[in-house]
């Protein structure tokens, strides 16, 4: 297992390097940058005093250096104006718009993003597992048809539209706003049970909205896999030997059908992170989503770059975890990397 772990981790490094380079390229793409926009604005106002400060910032952030050097400084493998100071040294960059380090701008929103996505994964499992088994064990039953139909709707309704609809009906029927992270009276209050409860209540809708599509996809996969397994002769043998159908189901076919259950999370994660970004914008949740949107609009490119990298990191780590869990579950995968003895 230790060997597989090392192998999997060593795969992650080149992926992350490539992704960070890609992201750096993308955020440098727009013509102009925040500082030159600022200069143009100041010139238009006839103000020259601040130009010195901006010229200082330009050299401070290495805007006059070639692209590859700036990337190196950003990552922390090339000395910048203040020596080595990049991600590897724990410096996440500077937000021009807020005039603060990125770390301070983001603050709690990173933790909330992780919490939201983690909760979504849990909810997907909690929903998909029983329903998938149910609709495979009682194939073509009323429940099966009902869940299949719901699943189609769930897959087809884009999550940001769903959250808009929910926003509207929550307002219409209950007169409450489901947007935001907590009820308005708690916003400046100290942490208490009431505040924590309010936060949890406000997370229910976003988690369901983001996880709905993923759960539907997973139910379909689990059902199909379980149905394949249930037709195999060993099930008949087990039944003939006198095991109860329920015990047979849990003991053999379910275990065989579990693999994709773990593996799929790796495929679903990018979708979920995407979903959490746009749903947060609609529901006004203080995750990285709204900050990213604003940063992209104002070309605050270190802030945008860090958020993109964080989102990518979240999926890459999630995929690695799902692979490791899979290896823990299934010795065939764990041992396949090894040379034949």
């Amino acid at each position: 297992m230790g060997r597989y772990f090392l192998h999997r981790m060593s795969l992650m490094a080149p992926t992350l390097i490539a992704i960070s380079a890609l992201i750096f390229l993308v955020i440098q793409l727009p013509p102009g940058d925040y500082l030159s926009n600022q200069v143009a604005e100041l010139r238009a106002q006839g103000e020259e005093a601040n130009l010195d400060k901006i010229a200082f910032m330009r050299s401070e952030f290495g805007f006059d250096r070639p692209l590859i050097e700036r990337y190196g400084v950003w990552i922390g493998v090339w000395p910048g104006a203040n020596g080595f100071s990049g991600f590897l040294q724990g410096n996440w960059g500077w937000s021009f718009e807020y005039n603060k380090p990125v770390r301070e701008v983001l603050g709690d929103s990173l933790a909330l993003t992780v919490l939201l996505n983690f909760a979504t994964v849990l909810v997907i499992y909690l929903i998909a597992f029983p329903i998938g088994i149910l609709s495979a064990a009682w194939q073509y039953s009323l429940a099966d048809y009902g869940f299949t139909f719901l699943g189609y709707i769930g897959l087809a309704t884009p999550n940001f539209l769903l959250s808009l609809i929910l926003l509207y009906y929550a307002n219409l029927w209950f007169g409450l706003s489901i947007g935001g992270l907590m009820a308005p009276e708690y916003i400046d209050a100290a942490w208490s049970w009431g505040k924590a409860r309010s936060v949890l209540e406000h997370l229910v809708i976003p988690v369901l909205v983001i996880g709905g599509g993923g759960a539907a996809a997973m139910i379909r996969r689990l059902r199909a896999n379980l149905l394949d397994e249930l037709q195999k002769p060993y099930v008949t043998t087990a039944l003939a030997k006198g095991l109860t159908p329920f015990r047979v189901l849990l003991k053999y076919p379910l275990r065989m059908a579990l693999n994709p259950f773990i593996a799929d999370i790796g495929d679903l994660l990018p979708q979920m992170v995407s979903g959490s970004v746009i749903v947060s914008v609609v529901l006004n949740l203080p995750t990285i989503g709204p900050v990213l949107l604003q940063a992209l609009r104002s070309q605050d490119h270190y802030l945008a770059g860090f958020i993109l990298l964080f989102a990518a990191l979240l999926t890459v780590i999630g995929m690695a975890v799902s692979d490791l869990l899979l290896a823990l579950l299934d010795p065939r995968i764990r041992l396949s990397g090894r040379p034949a003895a």
């Binding site: 994660l269 995407s274 992209l296 993109l308 999926t315």
Partner: peptide, 13 residues
């Protein structure tokens, strides 16, 4: 491995 939407957002911005 890249979440689709953030990348789309960055590129279209």
């Amino acid at each position: 491995a890249m979440p689709e939407l953030p990348l789309w957002m960055a590129l279209s911005a």
